[in-house]
């Protein structure tokens, strides 16, 4: 079956199929890096081949080769006719290969791993970041020139930029934690639970027409006002600095 795959590809791509070989029960084709995605697309979509089952994508490092340091391999199987094929291409260090994650979603993680371990980039990949190692890791460990016994120091805590606020929060920020709204109770209200929880449980009247709610609304309004004033004053300071 697999020989038929090679024949079909030969008929389609002709000279662009650089090499074909058969060893140890597996058929292999070699294509140029610029044909990589096109061949992959064809393998999946051709009515005869139907290589729809993604098996693996990996790489091998040959640092002693004068050019094209890495071999990238794509292993595929057809769920329809059981054919198998191995596609190989060669890329040089720093060179990007087209992504096949659009053809088989499973290639997404496999390409991320190849990036992580070998440092081979994939152009058009939706989410190319390290997957097994952490982002502070220096180097790509499956390259032959990465010594196996190299230790990397522990990384410090990350600065998280997207989160604009970290604990501890102010008194009135965040989710209510207490079950009893002591503030309201001491103010003479009849509320046994905090407004949010009480409302969820249907134990108390709705917020908007209770006194406590009015108080809260007042407080929120005051807070918003204070924030607005602060914002304007900061802007004013900035402008002043600009001058």
């Amino acid at each position: 079956m697999s020989q038929a795959v090679v024949d079909r590809l030969r008929a389609q791509f002709g000279e662009r199929l650089l090499e074909t070989s058969h060893a140890f029960g597996g058929h292999e084709i070699v294509v140029a890096d610029k044909d990589w995605v096109e061949v992959a697309q064809f393998l999946k979509e051709d009515g005869e081949l139907q290589m729809d089952h993604f098996i693996d994508l990996t790489a091998v490092d040959y640092p002693e080769r004068p050019s094209a340091r890495f071999d990238v391999l794509l292993l595929l199987r057809s769920s329809v006719n059981g054919g198998r094929i191995r596609v190989r291409t060669r890329v040089d260090e720093g060179q990007e290969l087209g992504t096949v994650s659009g053809v088989w979603p499973g290639a997404n993680w496999a390409e991320r791993e190849v990036w992580d371990m070998f440092g081979i980039g994939f152009s058009g990949h939706p989410d190319l970041r390290r997957i097994l190692l952490y982002e502070e890791f220096i180097g790509h460990p499956l390259r032959k020139d990465y010594p196996i016994d190299r230790a990397q120091p522990l990384v410090p805590y990350r600065e998280v930029e997207e989160i604009d606020k970290l604990p501890p929060f102010g008194i009135e920020e965040g989710q209510p934690f207490a079950r009893i709204d002591w503030e309201a109770r001491l103010a003479g209200g009849d509320n046994q639970v905090s407004p949010a929880i009480g409302l969820q449980q249907g134990q108390r009247r709705a917020l908007s027409d209770s006194e406590a709610a009015l108080q809260i609304q007042k407080r929120l309004a005051a807070k918003a006002k204070a924030a607005a004033t602060e914002a304007t004053s900061t802007e004013a300071t900035k402008e002043g600095q600009g001058d």
């Binding site: 089952h53 993604f54 098996i55 088989w104």
Partner: peptide, 8 residues
């Protein structure tokens, strides 16, 4: 289809 594409 997803099982095939993801290589399950």
């Amino acid at each position: 289809e997803d099982a095939l594409g993801y290589g399950c």
